[in-house]
């Protein structure tokens, strides 16, 4: 029974990792941009929520409604004025620019908020749990997984059912031809990064309620997010969810054997999946 419990908790944790990864997956799928600052941008979003909640006395779930448009603007500006300039065949400039950005955001937050651990306080819901048959499941983790599923469902709807989504897919397949059809790839990219930052804000909400955070934890979240994206297969959003769950379950099982092995087990699962399927579980794109 304890194993079932461990796996269920791992799946729920996977929901959080999928939320970390969904924005990354979207951006990579559309513009082949690997954003090494994604983890730090999630932490930045968490601090924005924290500030809003503190300054206006709001519940984090309400504060996120104000933080999301702010982060959309951050993403839009970032893409328009920085990242669009370095997109191209050479993968080095975008990698190095986002790497620089990661260092700048991390140290900027350290400067502004100090290295103290922070937490978003959501009230009694944090400790609430419900019984699912023989095992008890926390309401917050369950809500996290449900949110991940909703976010990925919504992104898929956007991608395959709307005009904007058609522009996303067209630009992803062939930016030049899409341009000839009246789409401005740079605008499309800016909107996509903005949406990715909204998803990052939702991820930040659950990250901040689940555990303490400080300005330096971004890179570790980035690794989990990337593992989820790569395991899932490039360009597949449902694959990203599956990837997040694989990492979450592996970490849960590792921790059940020896608490020191939690993170290691996730990394090893990542390596094993890639050794067997180098392109991930459900690859959509061909690169």
């Amino acid at each position: 029974m304890i194993w079932v419990d461990t796996i269920v908790q791992g799946v729920l944790l996977g929901g959080l990792y999928a939320l970390f990864a969904a924005g990354l997956s979207l951006v990579f799928g559309i513009m082949r941009l690997v954003n090494l600052a994604h983890g730090d941008l999630i932490v930045l979003a968490a601090f924005v929520i924290l500030t809003m909640a503190g300054a206006l006395g709001l519940h984090p779930f309400v504060a996120v409604l104000i933080a999301a448009p702010v982060m959309f603007a951050v993403g839009w500006l970032l893409q328009t004025y920085v990242l669009n300039r370095v997109l191209g065949d050479d993968i080095l400039p975008p990698l190095l620019v986002t790497f620089g950005l990661s260092v700048v955001i991390q140290n900027g937050l350290l400067e502004g908020f100090s290295a103290d651990s922070q937490k978003l306080s959501a009230g009694p819901i944090e400790a609430a749990s419900i019984k699912l048959g023989p095992i008890a499941v926390g309401v917050m983790p369950l809500l996290t997984l449900v949110s991940a599923i909703v976010v990925i469902f919504a992104l898929n709807q956007l991608f395959y059912r709307t005009k904007l989504g058609r522009a996303f897919r067209a630009t992803s397949d062939d930016a030049v031809t899409a341009g000839l059809m009246g789409i401005r790839p740079r605008n499309v990219f800016a909107i996509a990064t903005g949406i990715a930052m909204v998803v990052a804000t939702i991820a930040a909400l659950y990250l901040g309620i689940r555990a303490n955070f400080d300005p330096t934890i971004g890179p570790a979240r980035l690794i989990y997010a990337f593992q989820a994206v790569i395991i899932g297969g490039l360009g597949s959003l449902w694959g990203t969810l599956a990837g997040g769950i694989v990492i979450g379950v592996a970490q849960g099982l590792g921790a059940a054997i020896n608490p020191e092995w939690q993170i290691l087990a996730g990394h090893i699962a990542f390596v094993l999946v890639l050794l067997i399927r180098p392109r991930g579980l459900f690859p959509r794109a061909n690169d």
Partner: peptide, 27 residues
């Protein structure tokens, strides 16, 4: 392991590999 990964994903692969070595040596 990492040479199987394309372009930018190579970067992430090397990073994960370094983390695995770090966590293993901590044992």
């Amino acid at each position: 392991f990492t040479f199987r990964l394309n372009g930018a994903y190579f970067a992430i692969g090397t990073w994960v590999a370094a983390e695995i070595v770090r966590l293993s040596l901590a044992q």
